[in-house]
């Protein structure tokens, strides 16, 4: 499966989401500003590269993760991908488009425009990074939703999910085995 995170400029929110997906950024805490700037494509892409898909890496399930800038025309990306998939007989469910713009806040937009559109990098970069930090857990939630959906698609369940299904009872004292035979628990 090819997972394609897309946003307006392909430099902040989509790069952040792809990095969280691949484990380059933590999912449990907000990273330092310097950590964002160390990501190869963060606040780097120029307008003449919009539309170009960039490979970010492969996750543990073998899904390829990409980012792409589509400006304010998500319908063009969606329609073109669907049309080309049909034209070349590639599987329609072979890719997943994830719109990260829904998690972008005003600070990110202002900082992003200052840095990328108008070239005021010194002024825009700290603003957009602060905005990314503010929106971070929203992006994390989106990525978790995507990963959950991918797990369903692949029919795989993470170790954590499986652990939650195991009865918390002590060794020999649990009654989870009865659930399989249809017997009711001793206490109920």
């Amino acid at each position: 499966m090819k997972v394609i995170y897309h946003c307006y400029g392909g430099t902040h929110s989509s790069v952040t989401a792809a990095s969280i997906h691949l484990g380059f950024l933590p999912a449990d805490r907000i990273p330092e500003k310097e950590t964002f700037l160390r990501i190869p494509l963060y606040d780097r892409q120029e307008a003449d590269e919009h539309g170009q898909m960039f490979f970010m890496g492969q996750d543990e399930f073998g899904n390829e993760v990409y980012i792409v800038a589509r400006r304010n025309r998500p319908e063009v990306l969606e329609n073109l991908m669907a049309g080309l998939a049909a034209m070349f007989d590639t599987p329609r469910d072979g890719y997943m488009l994830v719109n990260v713009m829904v998690r972008v806040n005003l600070t990110m937009m202002i900082g992003g425009f200052l840095s990328r559109r108008w070239g005021f990098i010194r002024m825009g970069r700290p603003i957009v990074t602060a905005g990314t930090q503010a929106a971070y857990f929203k992006v994390v939630k989106l990525v978790k939703d995507v990963r959950r959906e991918l797990e369903v698609i692949h029919g795989k369940k993470s170790a954590l999910f499986q652990r939650q299904q195991i009865s918390p009872g002590s060794c020999g004292g649990g009654d989870s085995h009865r659930l399989f035979t249809g017997e009711s628990g001793t206490g109920s």
Binding site: H50, G51, M53, R70, R71, G83
Partner: peptide, 28 residues
Amino acid sequence: NKVYALWLKGEKGMPYRLIDSFLDLYRL
């Protein structure tokens, strides 16, 4: 040859790059 029509508005650089990327993605 199969013939298709595609409607685009405004700057065409981005859709062209999207198509190019799609072909690269699937090694077509």
